[in-house]
Design a protein around this nucleic acid. Structure first.
Length: 128
RNA sequence: AAAAGCAGGAGAGGUAAUCGCAAAAGAGAUUUAUUUUGGAAACAAAAUAAAUCUCUUUUGAGGAAAGUCCGGGCUCCCAUAUGGUCAGGCUCGCUGGGUAACGCCCAGUGCGGGAAACCGCGAGGAUAGUGCCACAGAAACAUACCGCCUAAUGCUCUAAGAGCAUGGUAAGGGUGCAAAGGUGCGGUAAGAGCGCACCAGUAAUAUCGAGAGGUAUUAGCUAGGUAAACCCCGGCUGGGUGCAAGGCUAAGAGGAUAUUAUGACCAUUAUCAAUUCUUCUUUGAAGCGCCGCUUGAGGCUGAGAAGUAAUUCCAGUCCUAGAUAGAUGAUUACCCGCCUUAAUCUAAAGGUGAACAGAACCCGGCUUAUGACCUGCUUUUACUU
RNA sequence: UGGGCCGUCGCCAAGUGGUAAGGCAGCGGGUUUUGGUCUCGCCAUUCCUAGGUUCGAAUCCUAGCGGCCCAG
């Protein structure tokens, strides 16, 4: 399971925008950053219809593990878990979410990761 | 026989289905814009373009994609007619060949290791010059500490002879990683390639080889090590920049240069417009919005041809990832392989599909990582003779 | 993706081929009724790892491992 293209965040500017103007929710292993969508940024991508959608991105730093295989596995795990709880009605929530994994060893704590991910999402109150 | 370790080899499970992701192609639907046709008009139809959605088909990571250590392609900037020379750079440095090129590969030579099979080698020059060689030692490159010698010369004592000086020596001792080729015999006052035999090297000649070199003969010809110290010799090489290279798509302002035009005979200077180059600013953006972006020194097959081989040539066939906060995942079934249970065998049940690891402009190498399998070697344990 | 720097005792470090300085910490002794201060002694053996050059490498050369920083 992977995210379809319309739900991904794209482009340098969007990430700059989120880093500047966002509400942050801290956990032990990760940080959630949430911002209202600003579809003006995406006009240059020439995809007008989905600019207002709910969008998500997951970033994992090299400090988590140096091997890109491990980082890919973690990303897929989180995306799968997100898509299981996701419904089509949520499509029209105009928010962008960025999940930032901090440094640390994740290899043994897969279940803990997923728990944190869900509790943090519950805190934000976006998906009900 | 089993286990462990080391080295090398080929290879990196297959087929089908469901859900999900990416790219390409095709079909359909919706919306918007433009054009054409019909019409008095409303509008209708068709075509094209853009955006979105749905469906179908095809395709979708590696041997190292890694490290970024070399060599290229491609790219722009600087220099430049072309060629040569010099500087700089180079872990380039036995010979011949291969390659687009290489510091890579193949074959040979020499040396080192080994009983052998075989394995390894950065392998030009130390009489072109300079530097360094701690401690020790007389001395680290040309000297004499302890020694050895009185054959020669001088002096003293004097019967032979002894002592001292001038000397002669590099055999012995000691020092050290290293001390004027080594061992033995002769020779000598004592010694010394001073002479001889054998061994190591060097040079000349002859001969074999395409060459590095090999073999033989002759000549006493033999002055430490270090160039992975500077350096010398030969060889190669324009310098930088790396796809975040570079190019394209809005508007405005300034600068530079040349050409054309105007006025003047010309030059110079001034003005204006266009082109070109370039800098800055603005806007949501001008770093993947689009191109570069994947057909290339390409892959596969051929007991094809040439060659010892690397490799090249020929024929046939195929198009087989192009993402951009970054697609390749999950589940199930069968086959195949392995393991365990059980065991005379067959059959059966269960488990497992791993290790290293993820394309980011593209190729050729090198290096490093790697489970199970095959081959070889070593060690340990058990059994038999 | 590209580029640069570094690795020496538990910590901070000096060391440009010839026995690996020094400080802090630690351990032991002395001084003190006891502790601190002071003082004396001890403490690197694989200089991140593996090869090579050399008579001899922390240092020179090659390959790897690890850490930090910069560009955007």
């Amino acid at each position: 399971m992977a995210l379809p293209k319309r739900m991904r965040l794209q482009g340098h500017r969007t990430f700059k925008y989120i880093h500047k103007n966002s509400i942050k929710y801290y956990g032990k292993l990760m940080v959630l950053k949430i911002a209202k969508s600003s579809p003006q940024i995406l006009e240059s991508h020439k995809k007008f219809n989905f600019a207002n959608n709910f969008k998500l991105a997951i970033t994992i730093s090299k400090k988590v593990s140096k091997k890109s295989v491990v980082r890919n596995k973690i990303r897929r795990l989180l995306q799968e878990n997100f898509l299981k709880n996701y419904k089509k009605e949520y499509n029209h929530i105009p928010y962008w979410v960025l999940v930032n994994l901090k440094s640390g060893s994740f290899c043994n704590y897969e279940t803990e990761l997923l728990k944190e991910f869900q509790t943090l999402f519950y805190k934000t109150g976006l998906l009900k």
